[in-house]
Design a binder for these strands. Sequence first.
DNA 1: GTGAAAGCGCTAACAT
DNA 2: ATGTTAGCGCTTTCAC
Lengths: 346, 346
Amino acid sequence: MSERRARRTAPTSHDVARLAGVSQSTVSYVMSGKRSISAETRERVMAAIEQLTYQPNAGARALRGRTTHVIALMVRLGERADPRDTVPYIDTIVEAARERDYDVVLITTDEGPDGLKRMAGRQNCDAFILMDVAARDERIATAAALDLPVVLIGTPADRAGLDAVDYDAVAAAEALVDELADTGHTHAVVLGETGGVVPGEYWFLSAFHDACRDRAAARGLAFDAVHPDRPGWAGVDAAAPRLLAHRGERLGLIARTPQAAEWLLQLTRLHGLRPGADVSVVGVCSDAAAAAFDPPVTNVSAQARDVSRKAVDLLFERLGGSETEPGLHLIAPGELHRRATTAVFS
Amino acid sequence: MSERRARRTAPTSHDVARLAGVSQSTVSYVMSGKRSISAETRERVMAAIEQLTYQPNAGARALRGRTTHVIALMVRLGERADPRDTVPYIDTIVEAARERDYDVVLITTDEGPDGLKRMAGRQNCDAFILMDVAARDERIATAAALDLPVVLIGTPADRAGLDAVDYDAVAAAEALVDELADTGHTHAVVLGETGGVVPGEYWFLSAFHDACRDRAAARGLAFDAVHPDRPGWAGVDAAAPRLLAHRGERLGLIARTPQAAEWLLQLTRLHGLRPGADVSVVGVCSDAAAAAFDPPVTNVSAQARDVSRKAVDLLFERLGGSETEPGLHLIAPGELHRRATTAVFS
DNA sequence: GTGAAAGCGCTAACAT
DNA sequence: ATGTTAGCGCTTTCAC
């Protein structure tokens, strides 16, 4: 007795209308609130919707209303990206989109410009957010020609008239160097990028390092930027002589990422230095991460959530028809929090 | 002179048909290949498609064909999850879906069962993949009632008749303990979960630890599982006395994650022990990550990509109408790779 | 080998 | 305050 379960077909607004004894359009208007409905009718319709657990068909809505309620998020997910640097952005973008009843389609940077053309051409989405924007990024010209709202996260050399949001890496660098200067340090060393990162590929890298250098000069600190030639801890370990060259003096170490901070703590520990006493470690990371380090690390906050929120806000302004001049929106780091790893030299 | 750019409306199959001098249905059939078309007609249609850069409207397709070409991926993205453990899965799922011309909508576990109902009810997707499946997971009953294909990644107490794919944590644990036993170790200690992870919340945690314990007993090794009571490095550091209690003997340390391996290396280093000579460190992580450690860590591979691929394969089998009995599919760890951190005791 | 036409489920303009 | 109807762009009969 092969019992084949009949595939129940989903209820339509027509079914709701019949059950409520009204016309299909009335159901639509009840849902949208775009015209006044007598309390009694509304009630009956709502009851029918409830009873059938009716939900409007997204395809039909998209077809008719030419709006998909989907935003496409293009991000790098492969080995080349550190997930800890991207997931907080993604999480916040999904959250902010959902607050407006939008869903997020995830596509990878590897798809390149064709991925954007596909999503836009098939009308799979209403708008784009592009992450991991490089200084020269082949996706940007395509995105700009798309006739759909686009927001970049990152700072390209040429925005091509698009909105962009980025973390203010310069302000972050300056705040960190100032902390060292204000507490009597004489030497600042920033741990640079490990492995084969092309210098100038991303604005935030060069901007951060340049700002460190410039601010150190302005505040009268000796400065070095150490870029390990091997990736991972091994590279940091190998660079120890240069990183700690001035360990006898008033030395402050600067980390651009939580991972870098972790390595610097490890390095100082291994060389018998006490962070906060013999040497300082300061860096960019979330307040939560900074407080969780052992010892807690003096930090300026990385603001991934603020950057993402701003990006989504901008996107929905555009979707709402805003025609204001597109621009680059820099998100300031939070206040610097002095924690245990700042050594105060008198 | 306010120049308002006319919003070009996207070309339709009708436009293509007109330009090629054929009927709309012919355009459709050229694209789908569902009936034979004369070479000459096909050529003209293709040329028109090219010229207009026509792409079919996804909403219309979904409406007519009742298939969205979208799979929904529900995953935990917030602070409670380590992005390094989830992103490789996500990446592979997106990749595998794209190979079949499907897109992936990302929704968060926080949306819970209602998120599934919404996606299914609105017909926003054709199928689901659920990640971070807990032993008792409120999403599963809802998912099972959905009448759409669902694949779980993880092992719940009750699959409710759904397909599930998981990493074979038991086999991994056994391979690691065997490596220690085979190389003459007398003591095995596994670094457990840090912070407030509820024991039994996830199958893979208890399964891994139980399997370590059982295999150690079977192979005659003294065994301990150390669960730090603080999260992060601080917890590991505080647990050092117990982790290294048997440092004088033939001790092997077991890490379930790359992060754990990193901490164990750091711990041994800090206590003047040489991994691979005085003590062993073995763990579960990708071969790439294992080789990148300093020194390279003996590992069994974590197989995130294989798990994800299997999940997507299963999903498309179901979408293709397969009615085979759903089951739990365990993905075996790769071969154990002995690297520098195995100490061989004679 | 090709065309004409119906209809998927919805919204909004046009009725009353 | 509500009903009727056209039509979004596509796929797939049905007809030749």
